[in-house]
Write a protein that binds this DNA or RNA. Structure first.
Lengths: 349, 349
DNA sequence: GCAGTTTCCGTGCACGGTAACGGAAAATTT
DNA sequence: AAATTTTCCGTTACCGTGCACGGAAACTGC
């Protein structure tokens, strides 16, 4: 039942042409008459010819580079998880003759992003993967990629440009909604604290904004009388955090529910550990090692994780597929599952 | 920085031998002197030579077959999810020259399993993936595979043989434990119903047994005074189920918590729909379409899913890796994450 | 009708690895 | 020491595709 794969040689034989000409047709190279072109195309369609990618790769020896633009990170931070996926993806792409190069930038310094973009272009990439932090600068960069005909894939967040090859990320609004539903355990809640991080945001695209919206909407729908409190902490001054929290929760003794929309729920664990009697119900985001630790120790009730490794791995794999095989991704916008992690299932992620 | 990949030709040149001889060494074929063998091995180690798999594949044109032994299923049943992963895996293995053939059997008919095993062997597989249902028969089959030198991978459940290449499945005990923790929402519970399916089990390996153990242990640890009720229903007589449930819950009006350890929580949704006033808290397993529907409609509180597609896909991929590249799997026992699905995140799985 | 262009296409080597073939050298027999 | 066998290894054709080279045919201009 398994018919032998048809090859270029078969097509050459059936058309009475040589494999050189067939090759020219396959690659739309010039120097072939309309008649021959049509004949070859017909036979190709008839036999359902598909080139042997590995033979092709072998013959070409073309070097391709995918450049990945990511924020710099300290060990244990969110972007480290993404990097893991990058490495995995790079690994499996390498035997398809695709190298992966990372260029990083400071996500709080717009100038470093500009520099990173230049560096990326200097590498003459065949494709780019990027996590867009600065809206306007990204638009400029993406424009350049377009004119150069370089395909690119968004991860984490995307901009509403219409040229990207694919996007891999989390449904941010829904993740906030989910967060609230878990925090409330689908019951009525009366007072909720949203702990936030104050930062200058010059046009940054930020998933936490959508998350908060989803969160607030759920609460509004299910517990219309609930009062939502905002509390800001500064991760750069870790020593002040506990005091800030102590003060706030002393003023609001009725609050039992705490949510945080960025990946740094671990910042409040030292406070939580001091108040076991309050039995806070706490939901945060992302499976950082520090968060998992807090989860297992029972200080955090639940984490919502978004598989940043998968995002990165699949982004690279989709881009590689496109570059090597010419396959368009089966869907352009790909939303990763929102994993609910508790102390009892965390270690299997 | 990126040194050119070393090839057989390089090794031949450096050892002063021909690539034919190098090839003999690489494949442990006979007809090469100890001296030459040692010389080649040394250079290989020095240069960190890795063969170009695609060139090798191209030259060999060897046909390999992976046989997958799975229970038959009706549309919408658990094993359909596994099959999806099989198809995916088969797809990506096919461009490495590995075909995948499925052989199915009736999981309630031991004789059909024997037949399936014979069929599988008749296909002269290079590797086998199997979900073992019948303990003794599987041991016999696995023994045969061993003597034939055919590697195999367990999915779903495994037997404690010491010869399997890898295992992909769920941590069943922990999944029961997790199930209880979610059902109780880490609170005290007083009465819980475990709905079960009665079946002849002649030595079948069955994940639901471990799940129940994990479940019972959690309850015993956290709610020692809780009474656990067993209730049996028969999926072959769907019309009787509702009556059975009505009777049971009428006799036990205090029960609010319901768990089920197989994939068929959907069987009780018609009952649940009739008693919204009881506000049952219900936890089941596996993301069957019917279960997801029940989840989204709010009849089921939560599902614990085990990614059967991933199990299958990764099993095939690991086996392919081993057959083609000679890579041993990085870990032998691979436990999939236990995904917690609620109505708010289900659609992203 | 001839030289010069263009257009079109066949030939042949390369990519990295496999494996059959056959021959030289070494080991064994007579 | 010649004949035979065995051990070892180089040569070669091939897998399917890409691409450079060069030649034949067709077309141009005179």
């Amino acid at each position: 039942m398994e018919t032998k794969k048809t090859t270029i040689k078969d097509i050459a034989r059936l058309t009475g042409l040589s494999k050189g000409t067939v090759d020219r047709v396959l690659h739309n190279r010039e120097g072939v008459s309309k008649k021959s072109y049509a004949k070859v195309m017909e036979v190709i369609k008839d036999l359902g010819y598909e080139p042997n990618v590995y033979a092709s790769l072998l013959a070409q020896k073309k070097e391709r580079v995918i450049v990945v633009l990511l924020p710099k990170y300290e060990p244990g931070e969110f972007w480290e998880l993404t990097e893991e996926g990058i490495i995995e993806g790079a690994d499996s792409s390498s035997n398809l003759g695709v190298k992966v190069a990372k260029v990083d930038y400071d996500q709080y310094d717009i100038e470093s992003f500009r520099t990173a973009c230049s560096k990326a272009l200097a590498l003459e990439p065949s494709g780019v993967v990027l996590a867009p932090m600065f809206r306007n600068e990204t638009l400029v960069f993406v424009d350049k990629l377009n004119t150069l005909g370089i395909p690119f894939v968004y991860i984490d967040t995307k901009l509403e440009t219409n040229s990207y090859l694919a996007y891999f990320g989390m449904p941010t609004y829904q993740s906030g909604y989910l967060c609230a539903s878990i925090l409330a355990d689908e019951q009525q809640v009366d007072e909720v604290a949203m702990i936030r991080i104050q930062r200058d945001k010059f046009g940054k695209s930020d998933p936490t904004i959508n998350r908060r919206e989803g969160f607030i909407d759920y609460i509004a729908e299910h517990s219309p009388d609930c009062s939502l409190h905002n509390l800001f902490i500064d991760p750069n001054k870790p020593k002040e955090i506990d005091a800030t929290l102590e003060k706030f929760f002393a003023e609001h003794p009725g609050i039992r529910y705490i949510a945080m929309f960025n990946s740094r729920i671990y910042l409040i664990t030292s406070f939580l550990a001091k108040h076991p009697e309050k039995n806070y119900r706490v939901v945060g985001f992302d499976n950082l090692a520090a968060n998992i630790k807090a989860l297992k120790s029972g200080l955090v009730t639940c984490l919502i994780a978004q598989r940043p490794e998968d995002q990165a791995r699949r982004a690279i794999s989709a881009l590689t597929d496109y570059l090597v095989f010419g396959h368009e991704p089966s869907s352009r916008d790909n939303f990763m599952p929102m994993d609910i992690l508790t102390r009892y299932n965390a270690e299997y992620y």
